[in-house]
Amino acid sequence: MSSIVLIAKRELRAHFKSLIGYVVIAALLLLDGLMFHAYALGDGKNLSSEVLREFFYYSSGMTGAAGILLSMRLLAEERREGTLVLLYTAPISDWQIVLGKWLSSFLFVCLFVVLSLYLPLMIVIHGSVHPGHLFSGYLGLILVAAATTAIGTLCSSMTSHQLVAGILGAVVFLLLVTMWFTARIASPPLDELLAYSAFFDKHFQPFTRGAIHTRAIVYYASVTFLSLLGARVVLSTRRWR
């Protein structure tokens, strides 16, 4: 456990030692704020829960994108710079490497998600928001962050090029998002399977409306677990490929 925390701390410190961490968070918050004013508050909507729902909807896209982009460098960069060997030779398991790396980017995205709390404050002040609605929306965002950073970690473990990892991650992410639309043209029983695999429409939408489904929690936890397991298996291929 301490090794996982150590790796995560090292990664996080690297983010904030340079200006990159601050620039990334500031840029993400700026984009989130612009989306909030342009889409959630715009378009003539004025009911509190409707505006909050729209805010969570757009924020989920930002969180997903941030998750993929921030995790694409985790292992790819180490591999490209040859420092992955150092980690391999350290007395830590592949699981610890993967979990430590993932945890760092997950916490970073969580920081962005938590900092965005000031945006729905406007709805709290000028309208009425139930704390439960806020809680469920933010829980959904954190689950999205966990799943997308795990997908990013998996893709990052597959290549030594950050860009390739980023593109791969985006493709997997978009595939999961578009499952919802693919399900409409598929025939049974595949349609049900595809609809269930849909990243946003099936599982995230209820969070935006203030409802928590246990199936959504299981789904996001499953995507996170399988992606991290996949990343661990990819790292282990060096021993037998």
Binding site: H130, G210, H213, T214
Partner: peptide, 9 residues
């Protein structure tokens, strides 16, 4: 599936 609706409205 269990659903927990946390809103009042």
């Amino acid at each position: 599936d269990s659903r927990y609706d946390l809103r009042t409205l």
